[in-house]
Design a protein around this nucleic acid. Structure first.
Lengths: 347, 347
DNA sequence: CTGAAAGCGCTAACAC
DNA sequence: GTGTTAGCGCTTTCAG
């Protein structure tokens, strides 16, 4: 039971050489005799030596860690993005420090500070609903730490790379589809005012209505805070009880759409005959429901890998003092038409 | 645009005092005059000073980081556990370095090494299916770094704390319930041979059959590798085509159970009248399916918070050179009976 | 091919 | 109440 952790100088002492030589041997440096290399490697393995990356990081001024801030890990979309990020990080020999903002501006600020203190080499952020200013994130830029935003990006112009999905077009296409199916009174359960994604989806919804010269009925637009199944359920009941005519519902997220389906089932409404339903995210289970849910698929894991690759590129550029100009990548969504919206089939 | 990061000595120089004093002022030390404290804090804020935690860590021999290794982040169960871990870590001012083993023994080893190199203060691990030995994890113990296992724990006796759910009893109770409902030919889609959770659930299944003096029909026991919906679907079809009598199916996981439901729906089998179905995990959506799925609920987020608290306690004990004896916490599951298994109602 | 020495940024005795 | 000093473990000139 060896409580003490092995250091370079432990190895050096035992071999009667300098720490510099040990360090070089371990790093497979050119100017080192095969003999010492073998001896060093042998002893390192014997003692199970593991370099202290805090020491190396301090010296080299790089931590080999990237920080990630997401609003909520449980969300399947974000956990997929994280998976993508982690696989790229792994391949590039970077570690991932994960933070969760819980959609809170204050927590996001604390998280950002912690990442800064950890001297992460770069940061990936999807901003919280509650975020209203960006100084806490811009400090990274100002200190030479690249930052790449993904999914929910700052509304104001920020001089950083961004990776997002085409929420506007995704929403537009699904609402257009509902219209094509004959819907004329489409409700929209939108997301929070401040989130870039919900704004864009909302605008896609408006644009589709406009294309069909339909008026916007404010009574049919409800704003989710939690984006939960329960909210979808409650909003659906509210709409049904309002007496407003409704023949279609577009929910900002599949979670909300599922709540909608449950409420409609309980109210004895036929989907899609009486009310067509569509969501956004294309959860795996959405496809196996009865009726299967029409939704907009977004490439989540790909978003993670792209964002991470972009970040690593910028980190590398930073090291070489290159000029790295920010990029913006917009990923295409894909409309998945399923029974929940196929009104025409039942005419 | 200030690329250089502010250090203690930058502040010290500007104030004409020593770095030690600055450090103490920042830490709110007792023996420091209010005047200097104010001056230091003011300047630190002005320059947006952030301590370099690599330097502090190197000096104090603690990183304030805990490492977490899970098989798969996308899995809702694990992301819930992680959420629990992160909230405890956040409150205790610890950071989380997250690793994903992808159920691979080799990757788990690499991950463990990386965490070790990062000199994390403690480690939380749920072992991969493929893990067949534990030296890579025991090295933490041997170096004075506490490790707490959760959910999928090492089979062999390991002198570390563990937090798990009572898989055996959970499985036993749900299979017993199926038997009470009149099932006599219950299939089990089990998980991988090496995973502690699937072993325990399998044994719970066997024990329930035994209690009813029923023979074990090997033809009705199929082993999942991926634990996916697709596997559940395929296995269900295989069983149906085999001609074996079946009136109940217990799937090791809700994902697999959902696949089962889909296959049964496609085959035109009535659930639960012809075949009762039950899962394990109690996914949120399982409750809103038609029919709603009977399942075994396990407290995932709580598992994360308990494991993290245990770990922090051991880290604290380690610092104070106390003897910390490993604990094992077993969390109760809860049987959620829903329509998919309620055969009796239809008699 | 190898060693000596300096230093990354911080903290903690120990002085005074 | 504050400064001096040493050193955490590593990398990297610069010598030789």
């Amino acid at each position: 039971m060896n409580k003490k952790q092995i250091t370079l100088s432990d190895l050096a002492k035992e071999l009667g050489i300098s720490t510099a030589t040990v360090s070089r041997a371990l790093k497979d440096y050119p100017d080192i005799s095969d003999e010492t290399k073998v001896r060093v490697l042998g002893l390192a393995k014997k003692w199970n030596y593991r370099p202290n990356s805090m020491a190396a990081g301090l010296r080299k001024r790089e931590s080999k860690v990237i920080g990630v801030i997401v609003p909520d890990i449980i969300n399947h979309f974000f956990s997929s993005v994280i998976k993508g990020i982690m696989s790229v990080a792994y391949d590039a020999d970077y570690r991932v420090m994960l933070m969760q903002s819980d959609e809170s501006f204050e927590k996001e600020q604390v998280d950002a500070e912690a990442l800064f203190s950890s001297r992460v080499d770069g940061v990936l952020v999807s901003v919280a609903h509650g975020t209203k200013s960006y100084e806490h994130l811009l400090q990274f830029n100002n200190s030479g730490i690249p930052i790449v935003f993904f999914d929910k990006v700052p509304k104001e112009v920020v001089d950083s790379s961004k990776v997002m999905v085409d929420d506007f077009h995704g929403a537009f296409s699904v609402v257009e589809h509902l219209l094509e199916q004959g819907c004329r009174h489409i409700a929209h359960f939108r997301g929070p005012q401040l989130a870039s994604t919900s704004i864009n989806r909302y605008e896609g919804y408006l644009a589709a209505l406009k294309k069909y010269d339909l008026p916007v009925n404010e009574a049919l637009i409800l704003e989710c805070e939690e984006l939960t199944l329960e909210e979808g359920q409650a909003f659906t009941n509210r709409i049904l009880n309002s007496g407003q005519p409704v023949d279609g519902i577009f929910a900002v997220t599949d979670a909300v759409a599922l709540g909608t389906l449950v409420a409609l089932r309980e109210a004895g409404k036929k989907v899609p005959q009486e009310i067509a339903v569509a969501g956004f995210s294309d959860w795996k289970i959405s496809a196996i429901l009865d009726p299967p849910l029409t939704s907009v698929a977004q490439p989540s894991e790909e978003m993670g890998t792209l964002a991470a690759k972009l970040l690593l590129k910028e980190i590398a550029g930073m090291k070489d003092d290159e000029e790295v100009s920010p990029e913006t990548i917009i990923l295409r969504t894909e409309l998945k038409i399923r029974k929940s919206s196929m009104k025409k089939t039942f005419l």
